[in-house]
Design a protein around this nucleic acid. Structure first.
Length: 468
RNA sequence: GGCGCUGUACCCAAGCGGCUUAAGGGGAAGGUCUGCAAAACCUUUAUUCAUCGGUUCGAAUCCGAUCGGCGCCUCCA
């Protein structure tokens, strides 16, 4: 299995430090607002990466941080006359709601900056005693010149950065690229006590401290959006490696941006849609499908036309899923199927093993569906094993890894079990009506079911239904 | 100025040296099946991969130049 590693700028063989364990950290949101669908792409693709690692048999320990104290939160709190913690509480709650709606699996940990002040100040103290951090009247900075490898991730070098500098001038820093580890509290800002006085953590240090605490000094994978490569991830490396003396991360994964009309979707440009707005009109599966149809590293365009197209493509998958679910418990065992399921697993894995090539993987699933349908058309009577095999394949790939179909919808709780039985009862009666050519009544049943959200389709093997 | 990404059909998008005279999805056109809906199935829709050169037995894939588009270097997924 190969993963493109930003650090080496090539696809590296994936060899975790302590297999089957994989330690995986992803940069999460700053909780000051709803997240937009561009952020959603990163969260969803991170989820797909994690799910595939699980599919491959790894035991993944996954943490995603929440930045719950920073300038944007404080600003929002001030403008709304609330406390910073009220703001971060509100938007972290909303964050979790959106994740769930997008069918993203919960992380093992969601560490928050404000809950790790001790780990953070300890790390800063260590950097200070190593002579790498310096205190200027309560602000503590990281001295980039003290870390020889500074720039190894982003491919930048210090001299050029200083020349082209668009960085803000700050006379108190030794080098304009030095970054804050600890920020002295200004009047009215939230603060914590520290060896340097009242203040709060700088942005980058929380990830170093929390990653180390929950996953160890050297972790396997660290992921985030492209725009975090510099300075955020570069700074994380500097802090962590100067503090532990060990390599911080083996594999760095970065996601491409979501563009809208050829421009990066971003809060500051105002050209964004929140994830929850999109979810009002489109299914999580359609959104995930859209993202899976482009490779995670490249940029991708967003538009409602593309989402419509994904939703339509999805219907093709969902139709076969409905047919499988309707048949897998009732088909007879007489005819042996010779459908080569292994081929599709192989192709799926081959695609995903190559740096998570989800567009290819989706293509494999569509190939499968086409061939599977054809098999049904070509063979009058297929076996139970055939239905079960199809169920298993789609369950393991399209549902468990990519999350682009909804297999369980017709068979979840006891409550839906009863509903299903009632619908099946209606459909049995309807089948009798059809046999007697009483189409007026049978059509009425279908229409009325449609009105209450149950779509019915007739096939040569009987009717299938789906609860919308 | 530095670093990086990108240009494949009507749209989206894989492929990154021979398996490919280019996957998959959407769209469009025709057909089969069918009480009707729907689905499914079968055809068709890029001799061509921004342009021009070069390397090679062989290039969409490697190299060079040219012309576009985008991002990072400041908060940003």
């Amino acid at each position: 299995m190969k993963i493109y590693n930003t650090l080496t700028k090539q696809k590296d063989d994936f060899k975790p430090i302590n297999p089957p364990l994989v330690t995986f950290y992803a940069c999460g949101p700053t909780v000051y607002d709803f997240f937009h669908i561009g952020n959603g792409r990163t969260f969803i693709m991170t989820d797909v990466v994690r799910r595939y690692l699980i599919y491959k048999g790894f035991k993944v320990k996954f943490a995603m941080n929440l930045t719950d104290v920073d300038d944007k939160i404080i600003k929002k709190a001030n403008s709304e006359g609330k406390s910073a913690s009220d703001v971060s509480k509100k938007y972290s709650d909303e964050f979790f709601k959106d994740l769930e709606a997008l069918k993203i699996r919960k992380a093992d940990f969601y560490p928050r900056a404000t809950e790790h002040i001790i780990e953070i100040t300890n790390m800063i103290s260590k950097l200070e005693s190593n002579g790498i951090a310096y205190n200027v009247n309560g602000d503590v900075f990281f001295e980039v010149n003290k870390f020889d490898n500074y720039g190894k991730l982003s491919g930048k070098n210090l001299d050029e950065l200083e020349i082209g500098a668009r960085v803000e001038i700050n006379d108190s820093k030794k080098n304009s690229l030095d970054f804050a580890l600890w920020k002295k509290a200004k009047e009215g800002e939230p603060y914590w006590e520290s060896p340097w006085g009242k203040g709060r953590p700088g942005w980058h240090i929380e990830c170093s401290a929390m990653s180390t605490k929950h996953l160890g000094e050297t972790i396997d994978i660290h992921a985030g959006g492209n725009d975090l490569i510099f300075p955020h991830h570069e700074n994380e490396i500097a802090q962590s490696e100067c503090s532990s003396g060990k390599e911080f991360v083996k594999y760095w994964i970065h996601f491409g941006f979501l563009n809208i009309k050829e421009e990066k979707m971003s809060k500051s440009l105002g050209n964004f849609y929140t994830a929850r707005d999109i979810l009002k009109k489109y299914s999580a599966e359609a959104i995930r499908m859209l993202f899976c149809q482009t490779h995670y590293r490249g940029p991708m365009n967003f538009s409602f036309e593309l989402l419509d197209a994904s939703e339509k493509g999805l219907a093709k998958l969902q139709n076969i899923v409905d047919m499988i679910i309707s048949n897998k418990d009732s088909a007879d065992e007489k005819i042996n199927s010779e459908f080569d399921f292994a081929k599709y697993y192989r192709n799926f894995e081959e695609a995903m093993d190559d740096d998570f090539n989800t567009p290819q993987a989706v293509a494999v699933i569509f190939d499968f569906v086409k061939d599977y349908n054809k098999f049904i058309v070509d063979n009058n009577n297929v076996s139970k094993a055939f239905w079960q095999g199809g169920y298993d394949f789609l369950y393991r790939t399209a549902l468990e890894v990519l999350g682009i179909i909804d297999l369980g919808v017709n068979e979840i709780s006891d409550n839906t079990k009863l509903t299903n039985e009632l619908i099946n009862l209606l459909l049995e009666i309807r089948a009798k009506l059809k046999a007697e050519k009483k189409y007026l009544l049978s059509d009425e049943i279908r229409n009325r079911l449609g009105e209450i959200g149950v779509s019915v389709k007739d096939t040569k093997d009987g009717s299938t239904f789906r609860i919308n």
